[in-house]
Design a protein around this nucleic acid. Structure first.
Lengths: 216, 216
DNA sequence: TAGATTGTTAATCGATTAACAATC
DNA sequence: TAGATTGTTAATCGATTAACAATC
């Protein structure tokens, strides 16, 4: 297991590509491969070998001239970098359509993420998940509980800022924000936004560009 | 309505920020404001005035010295850029947890996106949405239907590539890919990936960095 | 050894930031 | 008019790509 002494921090684009590399490697591992070169990875992911090598150098020193990267070890190095080898607990705030889907979604545990409890303000939704494996509490009770440092925020946009402030007050250190609202919080709290509209905007822009080019 | 003659294309980071600007402006509009300066927008979104001005220059020429940007017109210019003023039809492929949430989600229509039909391979899921407003068909029937050019792909990862190939064959030009698989398709098809693991990786990295700094 | 593939150092490219002239 | 705020042109910063030496 490789751990770089982090004087510089890993570039954000590199971090974003890591789960993609991991996925690709798991696929090749399942196929029985034991080693792979950067250029093979690159061609599978529509990248360049240089970029793959530079990215992987941040998290692993397992690359060997001639043979490339040993898949098992590289997978472990990436998982370790991404924190998948430890379990991180999180609370889920809001169990509407999206939050409800997360409550059922078993995939998070592959990312080392475990939802320990969920909260909502709506008694109907709380009742709906009465028999859920993850307990769903009324948000009024949240102050009675010891919270983990990570929260997943899936509340309607008009409640996002107020809820986030309360979470920060209760000791939450990082918020995975699925509302479209930009949260204004103390710098001590890390916020990562997931906004589908951003992704859709990129898709649409490319689509239109291609259409315009095609039609002269 | 402003339309730049696109010789250069809009930078991706700029495109990604557009929905955030729009959201902020809608908020201020609801509060009764009629004009706003780039630096006010910037302070609300933790950006700089310069960046906001440069971004907005791509989609609007409504900025005026002394008074800033007229909110109504700017909103319209951004909506127009993002394609929210027209309706784009899309098919939804896969109605599991995430796809099911999308089927109910009314928010897409604000983005000018309308799900015209959904498909799945699982008869139980098809039956579950028997009375859904959006019809859910068996994917075996998909070839009988005329498809729109946009597809939302929410199938399990082991079916993603094959399904995408079929969609491409049937004339789909753009795929919004929620599976974690990198799709290898003809260049004619645009693919935009949404991978929660990428976002989680960024969150986690920041969290760890801060923790390491705090603990010396 | 020879040669494929790595990691590093330098060059390029693009986005952000700074400086400032234009203008309502 | 004076001054606040815009848009533009230049400088900086960071990521990607290229060139190449190191090495198994």
């Amino acid at each position: 297991m490789f751990r770089r002494v982090r004087t510089e921090s890993v570039p954000a684009p590199t971090i974003r590509r890591m789960p993609t590399y991991l996925n690709c490697l798991l696929h090749m591992q399942a196929k029985g491969m034991t080693a792979i070169s950067s250029s093979t990875i690159a061609s599978m992911l529509s990248l360049t070998g240089i970029q793959v090598r530079k990215d992987l150098a941040w998290v692993s020193d397992s690359g060997k001239p001639r043979t490339g990267f040993p898949i098992d070890r590289l997978i472990n190095d990436i998982k370790s970098f991404l924190g998948y080898n430890n379990v991180r607990e999180a609370v889920l705030i809001g169990v509407g359509h999206l939050g409800g889907a997360f409550l059922h979604y078993s995939g998070f545990k592959e990312y080392g993420l475990a939802i320990s409890a969920a909260y909502d303000i709506n008694p109907d939704l709380i009742a709906k998940y009465k028999d859920s494996e993850v307990p769903v509490y009324n948000i009024n009770e949240i102050e009675k509980h010891k919270l983990p440092e990570l929260a997943i925020l899936t509340v309607p946009h008009d409640q996002a800022q107020a809820t986030a402030e309360k979470l920060a007050q209760l000791g939450v250190k990082a918020i995975w924000n699925f509302s479209t609202v930009h949260l204004n919080l103390n710098d001590a709290v890390i916020v990562e936004n997931v906004d589908l509209a951003q992704s859709l905007a990129l898709l649409w822009n490319q689509y239109e560009l291609k259409r315009l080019n095609a039609n002269g």
